[in-house]
Design a protein around this nucleic acid. Structure first.
Length: 320
DNA sequence: CGTATTTGACCAGCGC
DNA sequence: GCGCTGGTCAAATACG
């Protein structure tokens, strides 16, 4: 088959109602999807009747997608409301969450309890609080250790993803990994490497209950601004990519964000804008793109509908 | 070759 | 005091 015509005509991907412009920023993925579509197209070149039926199906899927989008929007609003309530509650009752580490072991076990609560809420408590004076807190007198407060973040990842990396805009250097008693998954230990004097440490471990959830525990307070925010201020096109600790909630909600962007990139500028805010960091964008590409290419209905739409367009083209 | 990550060894706190 | 456990160090290794 001769692909040159289709390749030259990029408009074949501009499926009118389908807002595939999302891929404008991701040429590589676009190419992948494009080639797959072409292959499927070559395999499934069908009569006009069949393409008409497929177009109907495309419309049906689009409508379904729209409904799902609306549901997601509602869910997102509910989530934000819940999160703000939780944050408000935390700010009113800080002592209940940010327990001092007077006794290491006991605080560890109590943290595990709050951990499960956070997972249930899908939320994160406040930012990092006061810090220990350096990375050697375990050697410091108890008075100083007591000052070190912790915060916790839960990040939704793919279960197949074995890396214990939580992208929060800061630079971290891994300095240890340990399998703990109460969780078969190893716990990774990170130090903030953006500033040599930054005392912040974080521990990342998969949740026992749901291994797709990464639980990041932050200790201390950064004594420097978020590197991603520095980048943002230096480039007016870049919005604030990720906040400090609570960014993980942004990451955790990237799934819905993908869908919203796919369906609302034209109709809702506000949503598109908020999505852009969350996906400006290259790593996050890469992650999003990978997710989108895999979900799209795995969906036989989607590729079928796309092939139908393309074939319809080309057939129209040929009638001229 | 410089930097980041891995991993076994070591240390300190805690319970018995 | 001893053993268990979590946390950290640092040499070895991997990677760009």
């Amino acid at each position: 088959m001769d692909y040159s015509a289709a390749n030259d005509d990029d408009a074949s991907l501009d499926l009118n109602s389908m807002p595939l412009r999302l891929f404008d920023d991701t040429p590589m993925i676009k190419k992948e999807v494009h080639s797959k579509i072409l292959i499927d197209f070559g395999r499934q070149l069908s009569p006009k009747e069949e393409s008409g039926a497929l177009l109907e199906e495309l419309h049906r899927v689009s409508a379904e997608n729209k409904k799902l989008t609306e549901m997601l929007t509602v869910m997102g609003e509910n989530y934000n409301a819940l999160r703000s309530q939780l944050l408000e509650y935390m700010s009113k009752n800080p002592e209940k969450e940010l327990s001092p580490i007077s006794k290491k072991r006991k605080s560890e076990s109590s943290n595990n309890n709050t951990n499960s609560n956070n997972i249930m809420n899908g939320a994160v408590n406040g930012n990092s609080e006061s810090s220990s004076s350096d990375g050697e807190s375990y050697k410091k007198p108890r008075e100083e250790i007591v000052k070190a407060k912790i915060s916790r973040a839960c990040v939704q990842t793919e279960a197949s993803d074995t890396s214990l990396v939580v992208k929060d805009g800061y630079q971290w250097r891994k300095y240890g990994q340990k399998v703990t008693r109460d969780n078969p998954c190893p716990r990774a230990y990170f130090k903030c490497s953006f500033a040599p004097s930054c005392p912040v440490k974080k521990k990342v471990q998969r949740s026992v209950e749901d291994q797709s959830i990464l639980v990041a525990t932050y200790e201390g307070e950064h004594n420097h601004p978020n590197p991603s925010q520095i980048e943002a201020t230096s480039d007016s096109n870049h919005c604030v990519a990720i906040g400090s600790v609570p960014c993980s909630t942004s990451l955790g909600s990237t799934g819905p964000t993908i869908t919203l962007d796919l369906t609302k990139s034209k109709s809702s500028t506000a949503d598109a804008k908020s999505t852009k805010i969350r996906t400006e960091t290259p790593e996050v964008r890469k992650f999003l793109v990978e997710q989108m590409a895999s979900s799209l290419t795995k969906d036989p209905d989607f590729t079928k509908a796309l092939a139908a739409a393309i074939s319809g367009r080309i057939l129209q083209h040929n009638t001229y």
